[in-house]
């Protein structure tokens, strides 16, 4: 597996335009919980600014979206850049959600490959994976449990160069330094999708992270934590 593990680390925060509808703040320094907590705070603050229609944290970054018909993007970019250094730090303790996981077996079929890569047993991988608490750092590509931060760096597993088809619905997967929890399968949607991630387990009773029959519809918010419980390790 060939992979470049270097990630751009900025010395200073940078504000750039995303076309004429948004401004992106890339924070300085490495990915840390302390910085990410400030990103969440800035997200909540900026959403209240006049002319701002939406905000979305990324990993160490924040997108601020405007209406292009009325926006003054230069002023917004300046305001974002000036506000960022003054955003206070401090813990944001979210709720804790425990999720039972069956490691390996059907839906976790990549566990042996991951174990072989790390020269340990599948049970060792499960134990390492379930040890820490994971924090929901940023929204994912669509409504779900988001990007999780907190995986033990010893489980760093380079993403597959060639994607493979894997089942959707409650899957627990890892790639790079990240771990992901899939939402339950939605009737009528695609049953599988191509992915470069390794499926190491499944969470049979995972709750829906987004339910339109509930108010609010989102089960989890940024800053909430997820703990994986080893229910079983299958060969």
């Amino acid at each position: 597996m060939s992979v470049n593990r270097d990630v751009t680390v900025l010395q200073e925060a940078r504000v750039s335009f995303c076309g004429n509808t948004a401004v992106l703040l890339d924070a300085e320094g490495p990915l840390t919980l302390a910085t990410q907590e400030r990103i969440w705070r800035l997200s909540d603050t900026a959403r209240q600014w006049e002319g701002v229609v939406d905000t979305q944290p990324g990993m160490n970054s924040l997108l601020v979206v405007v209406d292009p018909k009325t926006a003054d993007l230069e002023a917004l970019a300046a305001r974002l850049g000036e506000t960022w250094p003054a955003v206070p730090s401090g813990r944001i303790e979210g709720r804790l959600l425990e999720v039972g996981v069956v490691y390996g077996g059907e839906g976790g079929q990549d566990l042996p490959e991951v174990a072989a890569f790390h020269k340990c047993t599948p049970a060792d991988v499960a134990k390492l994976h379930a040890a820490p608490e994971y924090t929901i750092f940023a929204p994912g590509v669509t409504a779900g449990f988001g990007y999780l931060f907190g995986m033990d760096p010893r489980l760093f597993t380079p993403r597959r160069q060639v994607p493979v088809m894997r089942a959707l619905g409650g899957g627990v997967s890892i790639a790079g330094i990240q771990s992901n929890l899939g939402k339950p399968y939605v009737e009528g949607s695609a049953k599988a999708a191509p992915t470069g991630w390794y499926m190491i387990g499944r969470a049979p009773d995972v709750p829906s992270p987004f339910d339109f029959d509930k108010t609010p519809p989102n089960l989890v918010s940024l800053g909430d934590r997820i703990r994986f419980r080893v229910d079983r390790v299958e060969a």
Binding site: C18, T21, D26, P57, M59, S61, L63, V65
Partner: peptide
């Protein structure tokens, strides 16, 4: 230089 990018929010048109 080929540097990895962190996941970040994107807009239509990118």
């Amino acid at each position: 230089a080929l540097l990895e990018m962190r996941s970040h929010a994107i807009v239509p048109g990118v």
